[in-house]
Design a protein around this nucleic acid. Structure first.
Length: 576
DNA sequence: GCCGTTTTCGGCCCGACTGTTTTCAGTCG
């Protein structure tokens, strides 16, 4: 049983318990569900390795829930859950994906109208039955109807690179509204999570109404979900929701921290405030004084962290994954900066499937401020990309020599390749040819569905080739499109450590591969990484910044990323 | 049901918006 299914089951239990008005347990189950769905490793693997004790190590999972997970893993069923389902024959997982529908509403719809699932809900809406329920009216019914439409249109999260342009354009639009003196995009976007579910915008304005009106009348708005004085919420054509909050300057920092999240990070922060007898909310940090509260901080995020005795935590680290412990002792790692790259180690040219010539790519890389760029075209197995063979690589080398001569002193073009890893782990270019190149990236483009053991052995063999330097996009995933290959990443990291192999963070928005969690594992054991754009055209070179964001989310320092280093040092680091 | 540098009992984040109510419950983030 996969994590997703376990999480869904636990979440459903939480909802059932909420219907029964059980105290505190619903949140406990919801938290456990959240924790499971955020795990990178499969719970079944954790259980296989460490048994029930290992399950209890998962934050939010205690003895009781661990037992229930064990039952699910062993039997594929859970009696406790089955009993609850018998009591409430409601498809909670399905219905809870409808915006605005919580456990209490589901229960009411079931009791009064017999609604058990989405199909039943759609029928009830169609028959106009919902508006007649107590506490319901025409508007509530319409809201549910719109929720159903939205569900059919889009359910899921967007890769951050796909909405970045949109987010920035809304920000620009808000800036132009009279009275606005600051705009930020908060939420998971600010934390640079690989995908975002919605966008949270924050503004300071002397004229809130003007901002709200401008916001809800943007051309792309297809629905206004909420429209108040301090908060509005809209749904855009592409299916993403955008929230906007207007706050005053005095509490801007508190609001920015609050709406940046993550939720667990915020909860932990608030707990810290509470432990001091203080209160932290989106308006500021307060201490009690007689009947009222006195503000301690709120204008900036920095002063809130400081008052709580914490080092300032960069947004990318705010996931409650240990950063607050380090912040409390002022030992946060100094994360790699967004301007620290001096080269790009994966770039394709029009010698294979790229759009631009080697010289054009080199000049564009120079404009990015880089000192070097590796041309890494595909190799022969990738026929669809017109991959190069040994002779092709030799010919390309001559052209690179020519460009280097021309651009001498401006930028250095490195001879590289994105060499295909064949099914058995051998490379599809001869060692003799590879040995002549500056940089050999290896990557998998076929047989994505080999079993774990075989796939891991395949990549390991490629990594042990003495000419191989970097593993490009190691897990081969495409966000929202293709699952990562089944591979033992602990093993890959270990082999990288042993062989001096570099692992890549590919910055293409729907790759972001390695992902943050694996980056952190690699960084912890001292495996070196590269952050590349994987550009197939000049316009793609800035993709590296998405890779940098993930590097920061993986707590990488400048020293962990080889293409922040000067050329000679970087080359020395590479194998042979 | 979980959790712990005030711990193994007694706490558990908190406020805005909506729709339908005349004071609040439900949902969301």
């Amino acid at each position: 049983m996969r994590n997703e299914e376990i999480a869904k089951t636990l979440a459903a239990i939480g909802s059932f318990l909420e219907m029964d008005e059980v105290a505190f347990k619903p949140r406990a189950y919801a938290r456990a569900a959240e924790a499971i769905s955020n795990l990178e490793e499969e719970t079944s693997e954790i259980y296989k390795k460490g048994g029930i004790k290992a399950l209890e190590e998962i934050p939010g999972v205690g003895a009781s829930i661990a037992e229930k997970i064990e039952e699910l893993l062993k039997t594929g069923k859970l009696q406790y859950y089955e009993d609850l389902k018998k009591k409430h024959p409601i498809n909670v997982a399905e219905l809870s994906s409808i915006e605005g529908l919580g456990p209490k509403t589901m229960q009411l719809l079931y009791k009064k109208l017999g609604v058990k699932n989405l199909a039943g809900l759609e029928k009830a809406v169609k028959d106009g039955k919902i508006r007649k329920l107590p506490r319901f009216g025409q508007k509530s019914e319409e809201k549910i109807e719109k929720g159903i439409e939205a569900y059919h249109r889009h359910s899921g999260r967007f890769p951050i690179g796909e909405v970045a342009g949109l987010a920035e354009s809304i920000k620009d639009m808000l800036w132009k509204v009279p009275g606005v003196s600051r705009v930020d995009i908060a939420g998971s976007f600010r934390r640079r999570k690989e995908t975002v579910g919605d966008l949270d915008m924050l503004v300071i304005s002397t004229r809130p109404k003007a901002v709200m009106d401008a916001f809800i009348s943007q051309p792309d708005v297809i629905e206004v979900i909420a429209h108040g004085n301090t908060k509005s919420s809209v749904r855009l054509k592409i299916g993403i929701d955008v929230d906007l909050r207007v706050v005053n300057a005095e509490s801007y920092g508190a609001a920015l921290a609050y709406f940046t999240g993550s939720k667990p990070h915020n909860v932990a922060m608030r707990q810290m405030a509470q432990d001091k007898g203080w209160k932290l909310n989106e308006y500021g940090l307060f201490r009690k004084s007689g009947k009222g509260w006195i503000g301690l901080a709120g204008k900036t995020e920095e002063e809130i962290y400081e008052k709580l005795g914490l080092e300032y935590v960069p947004p990318e680290m705010r996931e409650d994954l240990g950063e607050l412990d380090l912040a409390a002792v002022h030992k946060l790692p100094r994360l790699i900066g967004y301007k620290d790259l001096v080269g790009d180690l994966q770039v394709q040219s029009n010698w294979t499937d790229g759009a631009n010539s080697i010289e054009e790519m080199a000049l564009a890389a120079e404009k990015m401020g880089y000192k070097y760029v590796a041309i890494t075209d595909h190799t022969k197995r990738l026929a669809m990309a017109h991959g190069l063979d040994e002779a092709g690589l030799a010919k390309q080398g001559v052209e690179i020599d020519r460009v280097n001569k021309k651009l001498k002193g401006r930028i250095k073009v490195l001879k590289g390749t994105e060499c295909d890893v064949l099914k058995d782990g051998t490379l599809d270019i001869s060692d003799k040819t590879l040995a002549k190149l500056d940089i050999v990236g290896v990557s998998i483009h076929s047989y994505f569905d080999l079993p774990l053991k075989e796939q891991t052995a395949r990549l390991e063999r490629a990594m042990r080739n003495p000419n191989a330097d970097i593993v490009f996009h190691p897990t081969c995933r495409l966000i929202n499109k293709r699952e990562p290959i089944s591979i033992d990443m602990d093993r890959v990291i270990k082999v990288a450590k042993e062989t001096g192999m570099v692992l890549e963070i590919d910055g293409i928005p729907d790759r972001l591969d390695l992902k943050d969690e694996y980056i952190r594992k690699a960084v912890e054991v001292g495996v070196k990484l590269s952050v590349d754009s994987d550009a197939h055209a000049i316009a793609h070179l800035p993709f590296a910044s998405y890779g940098l964001a993930q590097a920061r989310r993986g707590w990488a320092k400048r020293s962990d990323i080889v293409n922040t280093w000067p050329l000679e040092r970087m080359k020395k680091m590479l194998k042979s």
